[in-house]
Amino acid sequence: MACLIAAGCMTDNAQNEELPMQAELFIDGGVGFFPGLARPIVLDENALSADERDELARLASAARAEPAAPRAAASKPVPDGRSYRIRIAFADGTKELSCADPSVPPAFAALMAFIKAHGHR
């Protein structure tokens, strides 16, 4: 699990091999949220078909490139709104993306839906 959050945790034999992409989706808040019971949804590209790996790479690249949703200073918090974080371990390091209801960017939402559909707790 340490490779999910730490960059550069390859063994000596794997220094020149590309790390498989891994992602964790964290969802906080919402109705009936219990922090102690909340576990991330984890997705490892090794568990995916070749087409699904390509789709994951495309979605992750799009989400990385998409600018964060602007937060309006005057907007009120959404009652029982959720916040979302996706931590992605790439071969070149780890990136964490985050947003909250109601401002979920489209590429982030697409990546989140893919992780939910193909990942596990």
Rank of each mutant, 00 (worst) to 15 (best):
D80F: 13
V42H: 08
D44Y: 03
F90D: 07
E66M: 05
D54Y: 00
D92A: 09
A60F: 00
L37R: 07
A100M: 10
N16Q: 15
D80C: 09
S83Y: 00
D44Q: 07
A117G: 13
G30I: 05
A89M: 11
I86F: 02
C3G: 10
R121K: 12
L48A: 09
G8S: 00
A63I: 03
S83R: 09
C3W: 05
M112G: 02
N16M: 14
E17T: 05
F26P: 02
P67Q: 09
G8C: 03
A38S: 14
L25S: 11
C3R: 12
A7W: 09
D12F: 07
I5D: 08
I88E: 10
E52H: 03
L37Q: 14
L4M: 14
V42C: 11
D80N: 14
K116P: 03
G36K: 04
E45V: 01
E24K: 07
M21C: 08
A91D: 15
A7T: 13
L56P: 04
K116C: 11
R121A: 13
A7P: 08
K76A: 14
A7D: 14
A65T: 01
L4G: 15
A23S: 14
P67K: 06
K116T: 13
P20Y: 03
T11M: 06
K95T: 14
F34G: 02
A69L: 08
L56G: 06
P106Y: 06
D80Q: 12
A23R: 02
A63N: 03
P77A: 11
P70A: 05
F26S: 07
I27Q: 13
P105T: 03
E18Y: 13
A68G: 15
E24I: 02
L19M: 14
R64K: 02
M1I: 05
N13G: 05
A6V: 09
P102R: 13
M21R: 12
S75T: 06
S61V: 00
G119C: 08
P102W: 11
G30Y: 05
L59Y: 04
D12S: 10
T11H: 07
F90K: 05
S49T: 14
G32N: 03
L25Q: 06
A6W: 11
P35F: 08
A60W: 03
A2F: 12
P20M: 01
C99A: 05
P79K: 08
E96Y: 00
D92S: 12
T94C: 11
G36M: 07
N46K: 07
G8I: 00
N16S: 15
I115H: 02
M21Q: 14
A89C: 12
P77T: 01
E55M: 01
A117E: 15
A23I: 02
A57Y: 02
G119Y: 09
G29V: 02
Q15L: 15
E45M: 12
P102N: 11
S75W: 02
P70Y: 01
C9A: 07
R121H: 15
I115T: 06
E96Q: 12
M10W: 00
A60I: 01
L111S: 06
S83T: 06
A63T: 11
I5A: 10
L37T: 06
R39K: 10
A72M: 13
A6Y: 08
C3H: 13
A14Q: 10
R53G: 13
R82N: 10
A113R: 06
V104M: 11
A57W: 04
P105D: 09
S75N: 08
A74K: 09
A117L: 09
I41D: 15
F26Y: 13
V104N: 12
E18Q: 15
